[in-house]
Design a protein around this nucleic acid. Structure first.
Lengths: 230, 230
DNA sequence: ACCTGAACACCGTTCAAGT
DNA sequence: ACCTGAACACCGTTCAAGT
């Protein structure tokens, strides 16, 4: 039922992506997006450049400008695919549970390629998948008896919390990847300078908690103040 | 008391940053950071490159590698300065109010240069200012009677919410800047495709709400479930 | 109609050479 | 000790030319 909580970005060796010969005249948005996703899957977000896309499809690096006006436009299309994911939006009838699950889903979608998450989150949201998620979640909140205004407010709080959490997890993955590439660098994230910061020192043991549970605790906190089911 | 809620990034004309003649042998970390901050202030995050820094200081673009090992290291030092801000951490005795104010402070620090926010938030946090803020906030939460574990959990929820909110605001500013550079592009953020998304359509009027108030509402929601003052 | 390839105006970083 | 400058290996994008 629940997709595995994996982060499947590749070892980021910067290794060349194997080419896929493309017959002339067959370039399409779909083919380009597939190839781009494959590059990200194999080499992470850093590996994705117009030139890399060109060499993967054995096509001139400038051939895409017929299908996407800019790299950012291609990126937005890629983001929409990732945000859509491959699971249907939850609708078990239990609005509270569905809401929680829909945010877990969004987190999983974005963390599927952690190095991509930060890149996606820098762009203003515009894809259909993003707005469908918003519509779904706001609908669930209104189903709990909230006004449109209150539902919007709560949704934005949940969404921003989710985005911040994902960003933070994605950063940690990126840092770990960088450490593997150039070993010897300590993990700054979980080795904070707790010297002369006593309350931080007390918190350090709890910063290591697994991030899915941590995410869920935050959801509990935010959802805790909602009206009880009637 | 409260700093103005401004976002003071420049018009981002890409205009050349005026040079500041630098006598030989006087390059220092501090001078480099000052110049870098000035470039960001004038031209936004996009204008900041090693070469731009070089031409501003009238120095070879590779002269910095004595003081910072990489551009990212310089960026992290810059981030620390921004996160530190220029206001003291609030300590009025009212832990709840101080907590709220400390998060408003963090938001203001990061939004001081909105184009920089997304760049900063991509990097793993490591600076002293970041950890001092964490220590301060966790201390306040423990002062409210929370255990170290609970305080850590609540702090992370608040922090991630704050980061997501800031990211979202920064994205909107960046989009607005891009629109000014190439006018005619509609605002996707606040013109969601509400067609066939009725709950989203109902929410649209409330998405425009001013972002400071919106931020505060989210804080209320998260802080609402904390134990009442004893 | 669709793709090519040269070209433009950039990047971050390294390293031998200068002063 | 400190800075220079050429060089390396890249970027995204434009546009005239080809097929």
């Amino acid at each position: 039922m629940t997709a595995p909580d994996t982060q499947e970005d590749a070892p980021h060796t910067g290794a060349p992506v194997p080419p896929h010969r493309t017959p002339r005249g067959t370039l399409s948005r779909e083919l380009l997006l597939d190839a781009a996703m494959e590059i990200v899957r194999i080499g992470g977000a850093d590996a994705f450049s117009m030139r890399a896309l060109g060499s993967r499809l054995e096509v001139d690096p400038t051939a895409f400008y017929r299908h996407f006006r800019t790299k950012n436009e291609l990126l937005d299309a890629l983001a929409d695919i990732l945000i859509a994911g491959d699971e249907p939006l939850p609708s078990t009838g239990d609005a509270r549970a569905d809401l929680r699950e829909s945010l877990h889903q969004l987190r999983r979608c974005l963390l599927r390629h952690p190095t991509m998450a930060a890149v996606i989150l820098r762009r203003p949201p515009g894809g259909r998948a993003y707005w469908e998620r918003a519509n779904h979640a706001i609908g669930l909140l209104r189903g709990l008896g909230l006004s449109a205004e209150a539902a919007t407010s709560v949704y934005q709080t949940l969404l921003f919390y989710c985005l911040g959490h994902v960003l933070s997890e994605a950063r940690a993955v990126a840092a770990a990847v960088a450490r593997d590439r150039r070993p010897g660098t300590p993990t700054a994230t979980f080795n904070p300078p707790a010297h002369q910061l006593p309350d931080l020192a007390a918190a350090v043991p709890f910063l290591r908690a697994d991030t899915r549970t941590q995410f869920n605790e935050g959801l509990d906190l935010i959802l805790g103040s909602l009206p009880a089911p009637g």
